[in-house]
């Protein structure tokens, strides 16, 4: 053991060091905290307001709830109850689930099979097909709206869940195939071949080896597609039209803005209802979402 003497200066240096570090890093902390706050405030304001009384909302800013005296009774759930039962938000919430779940599962299933074929099966035109899919990644939806809508009208698919499911499946397909094929293509060739020698058919290789090993990529695409469909307004607006029976939360919220633009108690509660599921998905599965973004954009 060394003697005691060097200990004291060391301690002193640490203290000075710490102060110095603090001073040099203070601007960094300041900038990060300010930006994080700025980015959070709008949502926080909405959330707080959604629990306030309708008339209080119109006469004072949401930040006034922090002015003493703090009064817990000024908060209530009334806005939520009203918007859920009387403004169709409850039905819309169920509709959103009905739209989103199959519109997530269907493209995952289809894209994973296609991605496996593109990555590990031999067939003519394989490379060309994938190049086309990469190209389709950025085609604006707008390019497809009119012909698809016309086809839907003549097939009786507009205003139906099936129509929206299929549309979202189509629109999500390029990203799904791209993401999954890139991931599945990096699985070691030996694994696929070992399974083949072990006696697995393509379907067994797919279900027992490829799918379990690709769960991170599948989860990424699932989160991505789920958020995309849940948050979508354009596809719902065009293909569901004015059919309130099947309208998802985004559409109902948009109509609420149009009809009741100054009823802030309804808008804030409605907006939060439309946001709660994606926020939960996001907070719970952020890891996969980020990985999906990374894989989709930065690869190579």
């Amino acid at each position: 053991m060394s003697s005691l003497s060097p200990k004291r200066p060391a301690q002193a240096r640490t203290w000075v060091d710490r102060l110095e570090t603090l001073l040099t890093t203070a601007p960094v902390h300041l900038v990060v905290i300010v930006i994080a706050l700025l980015w959070t405030l709008p949502t926080a304001g909405l959330l707080i307001s959604s629990f306030r009384q309708p008339d209080a909302l119109l006469t004072s800013g949401w930040w006034s709830v922090f002015v003493p005296p703090l009064d817990p009774t000024q908060f209530h759930l009334g806005n939520y109850i009203t918007v859920l039962t009387r403004q169709g938000m409850g039905q819309a919430f169920i509709n959103s689930l009905i739209i989103t779940i199959p519109a997530t599962v269907m493209p995952i299933a289809i894209a994973t099979f296609a991605a496996y074929a593109l990555a590990w099966m031999q067939f003519p035109g394989r490379q060309l097909l994938f190049v086309v899919i990469v190209g389709l990644l950025v085609v604006p939806l707008q390019m497809t709206l009119i012909p698809v809508l016309r086809a839907y009208n003549s097939l009786g698919l507009s205003g139906t869940f099936l129509g929206v499911w299929l549309a979202h499946t189509g629109y999500g397909m390029p990203l799904g195939i791209y993401l999954l094929r890139n991931y599945i293509g990096t699985l070691p060739r030996d694994l696929i071949e070992a399974a083949a020698v072990d006696g697995a058919s393509h379907l067994k290789i797919f279900t027992r080896i490829v799918v379990p090993l690709s769960t991170p990529a599948i989860a990424s695409f699932a989160v991505f597609q789920f958020l995309w469909v849940w948050n979508d307004l354009l596809v719902a607006l065009v293909y569901l039209g004015g059919n309130q029976e099947v309208a998802p939360v985004t559409l109902v919220l948009r109509n609420l803005v149009g009809d009741r633009g100054q009823d802030w108690h309804l808008l804030t509660a409605g907006a939060f209802i439309s946001m709660v599921v994606p926020l939960l998905v996001f907070l719970g599965l952020q890891r996969y979402f980020v990985r999906g973004l990374l894989a989709g954009s930065v690869k190579g």
């Binding site: 070691p188 030996d190 694994l191 071949e193 070992a194 399974a195 080896i209 090993l213």
Partner: peptide, 9 residues
């Protein structure tokens, strides 16, 4: 296989 190709999962 050279890499053993053990199924990692």
């Amino acid at each position: 296989f050279q890499s053993y190709a053990l199924y990692p999962h």
